[in-house]
Design a binder for these strands. Structure first.
Lengths: 192, 192
DNA sequence: TAAGCAACCTAACGTTCGTTAGCAAATTTA
DNA sequence: TAAATTTGCTAACGAACGTTAGGTTGCTTA
């Protein structure tokens, strides 16, 4: 791992716990055991770190769900796979995920807008699955966008409590989450 | 409304959109149309504002769910009521809620610890309902804490997209959310 | 062995930060 | 109408901020 990557990693950890704005370059330098000015041998600016973390994670999330596109699968199956893929990325790097989810608003333009556009595209991926499930009769849901936001909020909360050394493994989390969310989506005529 | 409350309100709006650390007293003063130093005729420090917002909202959330305690109601009913109460508080003041949910980590000690203790107590209220629902056979859930976190994450995401002038009214949101979450919790033998 | 480069240093820059001191005007209260 | 309170001002403080300039050291490569 290059020195630049090491710096990014330490910065990510600090950004997660204290936030981007509340983390100074001197804090970061201190965590690395060097002087603040030395960091600038490796990066251009503080925000560059944030940009790299945010867009790298965006790439990872997109890569994960685009790898499993399957037109023939049912909406239920597709949603389950998407949830599993999302949880896998999230749990593999909790710190970067937290920064990706919480600190993107400190991006300056045009990165801020670029990021939001990517986020929209990602949400649309889930929205399409929901729409498909409604059309096929698999899902019954009061509002399409509402359903997507509720699902993603459930997924994106994980980083606040997940610990790799905890008892719940990523696969388990994905399973439980799928179960909780899907049974809330599935048409179920036996319930009034 | 006192000048102090006006200041708090404007600060809350800024804290929500830019975050506590990225909002300077000069930003706040500018939004109020006065000088930064003038603010200190009304408040003791920048953090005092954050403290007041966080703990006032905590009071509101507790007040809302404690008002509807009913030992005789079913767990399903209790959860529905708790969700409705929670959503009502959240939507009545989106900005303060956002600060309450996102900026509390910038509280200094001992307020930080105090806040976390309150948050735990609030989560436990929901946890008790879930536990009761499991005992009565109303709910079937893989993990108790997991269920609470997923529910609350769904609720606490609302502030990011809810607009009072939008088409969805608080009662509708609460209903839809209850429906999505409860049907995911309810024992349902007809599903495999 | 010389050149190049990666990694880090000290010193300092201009700026912004939260906050205080001291004072003036306006408004409210007695 | 006098006193007290509220609300704001200007000027300034010391500290912390992101960042740059210029230099040294030691390892790697030709």
């Amino acid at each position: 791992m290059s020195r630049k990557e090491q710096i990014e990693q330490k910065a990510t950890a600090l950004f997660k716990t204290r936030g981007f704005s509340a983390t100074s370059m001197r804090d970061l330098a201190n965590a690395l055991g060097i002087e603040a000015a030395s960091i600038y041998s490796h990066i251009r600016s503080k925000e560059e770190i944030l940009q790299r973390v945010c867009f790298r994670m965006a790439d990872e999330f997109f890569g994960a769900i685009e790898a499993l596109k399957d037109e023939n699968a049912s909406a239920t199956e597709q949603l389950q796979r998407a949830i599993t893929a999302h949880v896998r990325v999230l749990t593999r790097n909790t710190e970067a995920s937290a920064v990706f989810l919480q600190e993107w608003r400190h991006l300056s333009e045009p990165h801020h807008s670029d990021f939001l556009a990517l986020r929209d595209r990602y949400e649309n991926y889930f929205r399409d699955i929901i729409r498909q499930g409604i059309a096929s009769g698999e899902f019954q849901v009061p509002d399409e966008k509402f359903a997507v936001l509720t699902i993603l909020s459930g997924l994106n909360w994980i980083h606040t409590w997940y610990k790799p050394e905890g008892k719940m493994k990523p696969e388990e989390i994905a399973e439980n989450l799928s179960a909780m969310l899907l049974n809330g989506l599935k048409t179920n005529l036996s319930l009034n």
